[in-house]
């Protein structure tokens, strides 16, 4: 019964990512989109928070990363970069989605 959590807010402005991580269960996936991708920047407080979570898969949308100048060199480890097709695959492979607005 895996859930796909969708986070679209910057972790430095809103508590959406933190709340999401507090409610995600083992086996769930979290995809970061729009300003949510700022959580991927290496060395940031949010990236460290992602690294401390166990049993959850992380993904980030490539279009949003590129648009914000977050290249491979700036990406924290442990986050899969997916394109729109990959996002759709994640939606279909999970039982349901929850948006953290």
């Amino acid at each position: 019964m895996a859930m796909l959590h969708i986070v679209n807010k910057s972790p430095y402005e809103k508590g959406a990512l933190e709340s999401c991580l507090n409610h995600a269960l083992e086996g769930d996936t979290v995809i970061l989109i729009e300003d949510g991708v700022y959580a991927c920047v290496k060395g940031g407080r949010a990236a460290n928070a992602l690294a401390s979570v166990k049993g959850i898969r992380f993904a980030a949308l490539s279009a949003d990363l590129k648009a914000r100048g977050i290249g491979e060199d700036k990406m924290t480890e442990g986050v899969d970069v997916v394109d729109y097709g990959g996002f759709v695959d994640l939606v279909t492979s999970c039982d349901k989605t929850e948006s953290w607005l």
Partner: peptide, 18 residues
């Protein structure tokens, strides 16, 4: 509790966020 809330989310079929 927060943990019960997480299980509640997992136990529903459709989640509508506001």
């Amino acid at each position: 509790s927060r943990e019960e809330m997480a299980r509640l989310m997992a136990a529903n079929d459709v989640i509508l966020s506001f």
